[in-house]
Amino acid sequence: MNRVKKVLSSKQIVTLVWVIGLIIVWEIGATVIAQTKRTPEYVLPHISQIVDSVFSDKLVNGSQTATQIVLSNAALTLVRAGIGFIIGSIIGFILALLMNMFLPVEKIAFPYLMMIQMIPILGMAPIILAITKDIDKSRIVIAAILTFYPVATNTLAGFKAVEKAKHELMYSIAAKKKDIYKKLLIPASLPYFFTGLKISAPMAITASILVDTLQGGGGLGCMLSQSLKHAMSIYVFWQIVFFSAIIGILSFYLMSVIEKLVSPYKKVRR
């Protein structure tokens, strides 16, 4: 009994149950919809049909297959999301440093950060587009805005979580501020910094896709809305949905991998 319980509660099993459950619900939905008069593939195709469409060489917009459309537009979106993410991370980290070094900066900046964070991207995106007048720049800026906040707040929390005793060791040997940051605060807050990155990486991608929908200049989001308007195969839509979800999850794991590579930190397992 206990053994069964253990197996059932393991992480992989949970994931598996989730995926299977999702597939079942999906297929029931697809079957029900197929029974209605509408052609099912315009709304909710079977999963097998979507998988088929990935490998099919049927041209859907005259020159490209569904997969080609997704991949070529993905590059456009993801590269911008990546650039924005990197810029946002750097700004977020520097901001955390400044807020930790100078209390007034924290007092002044924090409410603004909260406010920026509360504006929905849907509202912010057109404003940014109007300011930058360039969809590429907007993608980068929006991704950066969404990234810097979780990075800044988490890193700041990391600085503040350093125990007093660890500071006292530095104090007792009259360490300079530079050394305290280099040898204590920054290494100690790395796990927090990466938590920030893990939160914001999928967000940056989502945001970049959202910005695409604003203009017809290509990108995953643009294709998403075009395919919804039946200008293209519905399979493009579903492929993008799955592709984005997978990329989002991968971006999270990529951060974990980078964390393991760069951080000398060993997690305490006790």
Binding site: A165, E168, S172
Partner: peptide
Amino acid sequence: IRLQQKFGIVFQNPVLYEWR
């Protein structure tokens, strides 16, 4: 004396940096 870095302290709890 502290600023001259003349103290060596062994703390009651060892205070080690766990990433090192």
